[in-house]
């Protein structure tokens, strides 16, 4: 009986140890599986978000009228600073709580995703040539302009030229030699 008790205690200890020892466990499915979060990444993102709302930022950044729209940063102060969007759309995810939000301005769009009761910037999409990247590239310019500015160290992903930096990617879509779309995207939500 003693052995039995020891074994049972061993099992319970294993379970509780497993429960506690997740410092390197990359993911936690929380509560009612409200969301699958990638802890390691999220910790980084939260830090970056805090930094982004301050002065230090990482990754490529889109700037409009003096407001830096930083991917994975807290959206609230940025949206407030950008002013009234021309349209707004909420996109509830299937099954999960929280809303993905789309703020459309005259020449660009800002998308957000919910994280820990905050909305973070998931992407910025430039719509026309009245706005450009901080480095001076806009829609309508050529492939060579892109390479001259950002270099040749890009990858081809799903038809886009992608420059990765920190937890974000800057994507250019070309039609022939001409840039037709520019997107700043978070990589935090990519699980693949």
């Amino acid at each position: 009986m003693k052995k039995l008790a020891v074994t049972l205690m061993g099992v319970l200890m294993c379970v509780s140890l497993a429960a506690c020892g997740n410092s390197n466990d990359s993911k936690v499915i929380s509560g009612d599986v409200n969301n699958t979060t990638v802890n390691a990444q999220n910790n980084n993102v939260e830090n970056e978000g805090q930094e982004a709302s301050g002065s230090s930022v990482s990754g490529y950044v889109f700037s409009f009228n003096g407001t830096d729209v930083v991917v994975d940063a807290d959206a609230e102060p940025i949206i407030a600073s950008l002013g009234e969007p021309t349209s707004y759309y909420e996109n509830p995810s299937c099954a999960f709580n929280g809303l993905d939000k789309i703020y459309t301005y005259s020449s660009f769009e800002v998308d957000t995703y919910p994280q820990n009761e905050k909305d973070l910037i998931s992407g910025v999409i430039l719509k026309d040539d009245t706005v450009s990247t901080k480095e001076g590239i806009c829609i309508g310019q050529s492939n060579q302009n892109m390479i001259d500015t950002y270099g040749e160290e890009y990858t081809n992903e799903d038809g886009m030229c992608v420059y990765r930096k920190d937890n974000m990617k800057l994507c250019f879509i070309l039609d022939g030699d001409q840039i037709v779309s520019i997107k700043y995207l978070s990589t935090v939500l990519d699980e693949e």
């Binding site: 379970v15 009612d32 999960f96």
Partner: peptide, 21 residues
């Protein structure tokens, strides 16, 4: 007994999808 306990613990820890999702 160990298997039964593990089965119960597993059932307990799995999401129930009742009040949410």
């Amino acid at each position: 007994l160990i298997l039964v306990i593990l089965f119960f613990v597993q059932k307990l820890f799995m999401p129930k999808y009742v009040s949410d999702v």
